[in-house]
Nucleic acid binder design. Structure first.
Ligand SMILES: [Mn+2]
Ligand SMILES: [Mn+2]
Ligand SMILES: [Mn+2]
Ligand SMILES: [Mn+2]
Lengths: 233, 233
DNA sequence: CAACAAAGTTAGTCAACTCTAACTCAGTTT
DNA sequence: AAACTGAGTTAGAGTTGACTAACTTTGTTG
């Protein structure tokens, strides 16, 4: 038992690696995908045997439950640990965006490392300084320090009917090049789009942003989530 | 060769543990103390064998030079690596103090962890946002991104003659309880004190802060560094 | 000078993570 | 039914950084 100096002071937390596994299982669960060994390994960029071994360890520690060979669920302890990391991650993103004007395509990578190094005390100060924010720069909801959390996603832009007015509520932060491109098109959280034609055979979806017409490839339009505006004519 | 996920993205840097060793050797060098295996081990809170082995590793990597059995010096590569960590550490302290009003007795512990997780890009943003600060909240000089750095300490309050007017320029950040106490006495970087009597046999040094008389034990007055004011009558 | 204490090193372990290679096991295909 | 394929696991090994126990080396002191 010889904790690395980087983790020494951060008490009862899972290791950085374990935190990343928990976060990944949580994310897969929220998006409805099965948390199989392979999916987790791919998401984390580790080999399948590594993921297999780590998942067994997490199961032994009571953080993960192996439902069947292809499905892993978080136990309630595991879920609460995962939520703590997710909370830190999103608060950090919000903090960097707010205090340093860091663009939304950069904050994720920074938070990916900092989430393991930010103490509870610092987390609390960030939360307070930002006025207890509820969403990060990508529209991801920030889990409360304790209590319930709803990770439900909105509808993908993908699925919005032609002619609809669509308000962007959330954009996946996984692909930073995509985020950069969306920003260049004028699309961020809070943007309102008018949905146009979808060209066939994998062609683009046309949308109007302000008075510009923009073409979004299917890979892009799947990343943008939001709601069709009702009362708006 | 299997980098931990927490370090994966931070390229050519020494490991967090190695960075802490380099920083410690640098600090010992600046304060004139010999960087022996034991001193380093004590400072880092590791066993002597651990330090012995790590120092050999750092020497093999060309970061540390073993002058004699009791004296370790940084090579120029080692010094430049150390300066990069020290720069990150102090910028982070300044950043936390500036953006979160974090008190000077808390910033050090946070920076101790964050210094290993902050990317070059984030470091640059922090530096720019603060207007390229030259000193951290304890008055420690922030090494430039490249080029020379002068770590010279001022005179300890300890050594100031009775009757002198003393301007506080720098306070050691090692003991956070001491920092808290000094702040409670109204003593921070920039404070001006009038030095009074030093009581014998390890008794306190009396100083005037504004219109209050304060007693500083020898342990405290050794932490406070600054300069006797000349032109001031 | 001999004895002792302090400092440094070596050897042997351990724990956490990762890897590759080689296997098992299921679920398709043909 | 046999063969292939994909997913999961086991085995063996490497890296980093820590530990304790047991030296050796050096320097101080009676
Ligand atoms: Mn992470
Ligand atoms: Mn996010
Ligand atoms: Mn550190
Ligand atoms: Mn400092």
């Amino acid at each position: 038992m010889a904790p690395n100096s980087a983790t020494r002071t951060l008490g009862g937390r899972p290791s950085p690696a374990a935190e990343d596994y928990l976060k990944t299982i949580f994310a897969l669960g929220s998006s409805g995908d099965a948390a199989s060994v392979s999916t987790i390994a791919t998401r984390l960029g580790v080999s399948r045997p590594s993921a297999s071994v780590m998942l067994k360890r997490l199961a032994d520690e009571g953080l993960v439950e192996r439902v069947d060979r292809h499905r892993h669920l978080l136990t309630s302890k595991g879920r609460s640990d995962a939520l703590r990391v997710v909370r830190r991650h999103r608060l950090i993103e919000a903090f960097l965006a707010a205090t340093l004007d860091m663009p939304w395509d950069e904050v994720h990578a920074e938070a990916e490392l900092l989430e393991h190094a930010v103490s509870d005390r610092l987390e609390a100060r960030i939360d307070a300084a930002l006025g207890h924010p509820t969403h990060d720069p990508h529209g991801d909801p920030i889990p409360p320090r304790q209590g319930d959390h709803d990770e439900a996603w909105h509808e993908p832009l993908d699925a919005a009917p032609p002619g609809a007015t669509f308000r962007v509520e959330r954009v996946s932060d996984r692909d930073s090049a995509a985020l950069r491109h969306l920003a260049a098109l004028g699309i961020t959280v809070g943007s309102t789009l008018v949905v146009g034609e979808r060209e066939p055979f994998g062609g683009p979806l046309w949308v109007r942003v302000g008075r510009r017409r923009r073409a979004l490839g299917p890979g892009l339009s799947r990343l943008v989530h939001g709601a069709v505006q009702e009362g708006q004519r």
